[in-house]
Computed example of a mutant assay.
Amino acid sequence: MTRIILGVEYDGSGFSGWQWQPEKRSIQQTLEQALSKVADQPVTVTCAGRTDAGVHAFEQVAHFDVDAERELHAWMLGGNSNLPDDVKITWVKAAVNDFHARYSAIARFYRYIILNRPAKPALQHGRVTWCYNPLDAGKMHQAAQYLIGNHDFSSFRAQGCQSKSPWRIMHFIDVYRHEDQVIMDISANAFLHHMVRNIAGVLMAIGMGKQPVDWTRELLEVKSRKLGGITAPPDGLYLGGVYYPEHYGIAKHPVFDKLPADAKRFD
Rank of each mutant, 00 (worst) to 15 (best):
T30I: 04
A74W: 03
S163A: 11
Q21S: 06
H73W: 14
V128N: 14
T46F: 13
G160A: 07
A232N: 05
V175G: 03
I199N: 11
I106D: 07
Y176D: 07
R111F: 02
Y176G: 03
M170Y: 00
E218V: 10
A107G: 05
T231Q: 15
E179H: 09
D67E: 05
V175H: 04
G240H: 07
K226I: 07
I250E: 10
P254I: 13
A39C: 12
L77S: 15
Y112G: 01
I183E: 08
F266H: 13
A94Y: 03
Y238L: 05
G228F: 07
E218N: 11
A53H: 01
Y110M: 09
G236D: 10
R265Y: 08
T30D: 03
K37E: 13
R127S: 10
R225G: 07
C161K: 09
M184T: 10
D257P: 00
V182K: 05
Q124F: 11
R127Q: 11
S155C: 08
R117V: 01
A251Y: 09
M195V: 11
Q29W: 12
M140W: 13
A137L: 04
A62D: 02
T129E: 05
H100K: 04
Y146L: 01
D86E: 03
S104W: 04
A53I: 02
Q29V: 09
Q162D: 09
G228L: 04
A101W: 00
V43R: 01
Q181A: 05
L219M: 14
A94N: 06
A62L: 00
A107V: 03
V222P: 09
L77D: 13
I114T: 06
H194T: 15
H171Q: 04
Y248M: 10
P254L: 10
Y10E: 13
V128Q: 13
A232S: 10
A251I: 11
Q159A: 15
E221H: 08
V255G: 00
P84A: 02
A232W: 06
G54W: 02
V128I: 08
K24Q: 15
L35E: 10
Q159E: 15
M76Q: 15
A94R: 12
L83D: 15
Q21G: 05
G201M: 14
V92M: 07
F172I: 00
G201C: 14
S26I: 12
K164D: 01
I206G: 15
D52M: 05
L237R: 09
G160P: 00
D136Q: 09
K226Q: 12
F191G: 12
Q21I: 03
N97Y: 04
T231A: 11
A48G: 10
D67I: 01
P245Y: 08
H73M: 09
A74P: 01
H141I: 14
